[in-house]
Write a protein that binds this DNA or RNA. Sequence first.
RNA 1: GCCGACGUAACUCAGUUGGUAGAGUAACGGUUUUGUAAACCGUCAGUCGCCGGUUCGAGUCCGGCCGUCGGCUCCA
Length: 582
Amino acid sequence: MANMTATQLDTSLPLSTLRHTAAHLLAHAVKDLFPETLVTIGPATDQGFYYDFERSTAFTPADLELLEARISELIKANLPVSRESISREAAIERFRNLGETYKVEIISAIPAESEITLYSVGGFTDLCRGPHVERSGQIGAVKLLSLAGAYWRGDEKNPMLQRIYGTAFATQEELDAHLHHLEEAAKRDHRKLGRELDLFSIEEDAGGGLVFWHPRGALVRNLIENFIREGLQERGYDPVLTPHVVSEQLYETSGHLENFSHGMFGPVEVEGQRFRLKPMNCPGHILIYRGALRSYRDLPVRYSEFGTVYRFERSGTLHGLTRVRGFTQDDAHLFCTPEQLQAEFESTVDEALRMMQAFGFSDFEYFLSTREHRGETDPIAEAAIRNALESRNLAYKIDEGGGAFYGPKLDINLRDAIGRPWQLGTVQVDFVLPERFDLSYRGADGAQHRPVMIHRALAGSMERFFGVLLEHYGGNFPTWLAPIQVVVLPISEHQADYAQNVSAELLKAGFRVELDGSNEKLGYKIRHWKTQKVPFIVVLGKSEVEAQTISVNARGVDEKRTPQSVASFIDELRANVTQRRN
RNA sequence: GCCGACGUAACUCAGUUGGUAGAGUAACGGUUUUGUAAACCGUCAGUCGCCGGUUCGAGUCCGGCCGUCGGCUCCA
């Protein structure tokens, strides 16, 4: 009966409200079980909620179970949630008396005109803006998920707090579904798939964040790069190649040393001269541009490079392929006249979308990241970005101060298997580096003018893109990208010659074929190659040899196909690959 | 870097209160000649992340370092 009511209410209830209350229940439980703990903040997130605590002893996984049990009791008790408005002085007084110093600090930071509210549930009262559900019973199910450290106010100069992550839903069924989803997502973790499919590795002996591409992974990456190259060629980009180590002087001129040194590897000294591993490709491309006189007739100049860069990342931040210390950008720099800026920027955005769609991505988030210290050219640069987004009806968010040091940028983000967002493509407008390097072109008026630069990487980094792509496909690369497209399985030794012929024919037709003549039963081989996620398995037994046909088993298709000719299968494969079917 | 957890065979993992390391998979050899997701038998396989300490004795306890994982922070 009570459940009915709760369910009815919940359908109109934002999940975030419910989770916010769940966070309060967590704090309630923590104060019950570990009264010496200080509370700080506990918001809802898009996956659940967390609450940050200060306590000298670390919480243990066993503590989470106790807390979860306590929370369940609080939910069962169906406690009312009450709201109370209070004066600033009374609020400070109250939390000071409780010794809740973090809360006092929060109150002091609340703007003078804002109302200060307290929310109480059971025996626990928290400073909170709300809103909350009316009764604790409206939270159907809570699960505490993990423990983590988090700096107070996200600043590493501040004390480290203990964060407890959890999630909550209106019903147990929804929670179970969510937990199931997390399990499924973990199965497509690119680090796991990378090992299982033998695509890449990160070697302890070589250092974290440095990727070793194994033959199959390198093959797929090359296919992706070739696809990107085709698009670049169509759009008038000229490939260039630049050194991985250059004189530090170059980065002094570019401003990287001043603005980006935190992201650079330290200097290497050779014959008394300091060199640096390149953290970005732009200065190199600029040198090529600057090496000759340029006319407005030459513009836009478009230089592209799969440029490998090295950036210092703190050890704790490294993550598979998606956060590394050495990576290759599908980078390009356009040098254009101010008049050309808008059109060039827009066509770059179109190219980015076209490319992402070719890989079956459609769910992006766009960010306009402005510079931390805006200059007089920023409004022009930002306008180019805004116009491009708005004319394409793309909703975007502003990331204040998130831009590069040389200009604002458009960032295109995607989420990985478990919902973590990753920045992939980026298109940036730059008036600063042309100035720093004193770039010019001769205009129609005979005078020297300053070009504008566009920096762009569409996949972003090949490593991260590959990692996200791997999760996106769950390891089931479409045929055009699959490292092995077809496996030929003779049922017994008697079909060995025929299998040899069939695989030779497929190889000759240009496909990536593996012949498995191992001494195993068919079922075993099928299973083996299915787990390797090969798109097509060709089975050859006695009847196929007699009829000169092949039996094709396509990935994801359960029905048994009627045997067909090799020629018809080749046609099918060809169509599949040229259309880049996903 | 910081907080927490973890590190045992190529992979996934067992290993009681300290007594000298085990399973499944893979690999290799053999038997079998196989019809759509795991045939059978056998063999090999580990400096228990590294260094140091406690102890008669350390995978197990303690300290330091390295790495991985979950986060914080930052970015492609």
